[in-house]
């Protein structure tokens, strides 16, 4: 945990310095990095419920979509400024997670995963039926072409989510989440109110996700249900977190960085069909070879990163 926290502080310093970059970057790089900050934030958010508490949510994209629509509605119909619309999105995400989490977080394992998937699909369908939200044809937002603003906004969300995770990891609440992940019944007999801790964790996760959704909506200035409730976002959150290290502090950001870099590289080689193939291969390799992700190798939390350990894992998994 100590090493993980040092790494998190290092990441925060690097990210803070990257705030100085935009004037020196061309538009494409600003775009790429903004997207990277956004995906990292989504993965950091997913990590709170999926990595720390061990509840694999396939419905976190719901809060992205709800955040995006809350922001769009507030700015388009209510003519709120972005700052207030952004706050509404954060609150809407957190509140929705609390309301949904109370019944859903009683389910475990596959049942929770399936229920959250159902919520994501159902919410997309519901939004597509609501006239004030433009039904299926989407909503426009005021155009802001200051793309540096979105760079800094997403960067701010990411830094806040990393700082929050670092704080939680060493807190009483963080230990409750990890205890719940490791064994929920054992956690309860030590005095942990598991239901409350899980709901709170999911609400924090949803607040960050909603914040990213709101910023995304303002950034693209047009949203529709298939875009902001896209399950691919949810799959990416999970892969990035697993690759970097579920339950670690900055693992999700590391995973997001690696996947984004691979994506950019393959995109630049104009072999984009391969992008998805490589992604699929990475998922399989991560699950087989790195069940705890890359982070333990960086923090020295694992005995040793050596070929023998890898070979032993390969033998054990009969590849």
């Amino acid at each position: 945990m100590q090493a993980g926290r040092r790494l998190a502080y290092g990441a925060l310093v690097v990210l803070a310095l990257s705030a100085l970059l935009p004037p020196h970057l061309n538009g494409n790089w600003v775009h790429v990095l903004t997207l990277f900050f956004m995906m990292s934030s989504l993965a950091q958010a997913w990590n709170l419920i999926g990595g720390f508490a061990g509840y694999a949510s396939f419905g976190n994209v719901t809060f992205f979509g709800v955040g995006a629509y809350a922001c769009a509605y507030a700015m388009n119909a209510l003519h709120w400024p972005f700052a207030t619309a952004f706050l509404l999105a954060v609150v809407a995400g957190a509140a929705l997670a609390a309301v949904l989490g109370w019944p859903i977080l009683r389910l475990r394992g596959h049942y929770f995963a399936i229920a959250t998937l159902g919520i994501a699909i159902g919410m997309q369908a519901l939004v597509a039926e609501l006239p004030p939200l433009g039904k299926g044809s989407g909503m426009t937002l005021p155009i802001n072409s200051n793309f540096h603003f979105f760079y800094w906004s997403m960067l701010g969300i990411l830094m806040a989510s990393i700082a929050l995770t670092a704080f939680i990891a060493q807190s009483r609440f963080g230990y409750a989440l990890v205890a719940i992940r490791e064994n929920e019944e054992a956690a309860a007999v030590l005095g942990i109110n598991a239901a409350r801790a899980k709901v709170f964790a999911w609400s924090l996760s949803a607040a960050i996700t909603g914040a990213a959704g709101a910023t995304y909506a303002y950034w693209t200035s047009f949203i529709d249900p298939p875009t902001v409730f896209d399950l691919n976002f949810n799959v990416l959150m999970i892969i990035m977190t697993l690759l970097g290290g579920a339950g670690s502090i900055v693992g999700p950001t590391l995973g997001a960085f690696i996947l984004s870099a691979i994506g950019e590289y393959l995109g630049a080689q104009s072999v984009s069909p391969w992008h998805t193939v490589v992604l699929g291969a990475i998922i399989v390799l991560v699950v087989v070879l790195l069940p705890r992700g890359l982070m333990p190798y960086l923090t020295g939390n694992l005995r040793a990163f050596n070929l023998n350990a890898l070979r032993a894992q390969l033998r054990a998994s009969r590849v």
Binding site: A176, E182, A187, V189, G191, I192
Partner: peptide
């Protein structure tokens, strides 16, 4: 009131000290 389990339920990925600390952080 505290209990133990016949089939032990350690928090496997935490250290021994952290396991016990969870009890102290959340107990009576």
């Amino acid at each position: 009131v505290a209990r133990t389990f016949q089939v032990v339920k350690p928090f496997a990925n935490l250290t021994v000290r952290e396991n016990v600390a969870v009890g102290a952080l959340y107990g009576r």
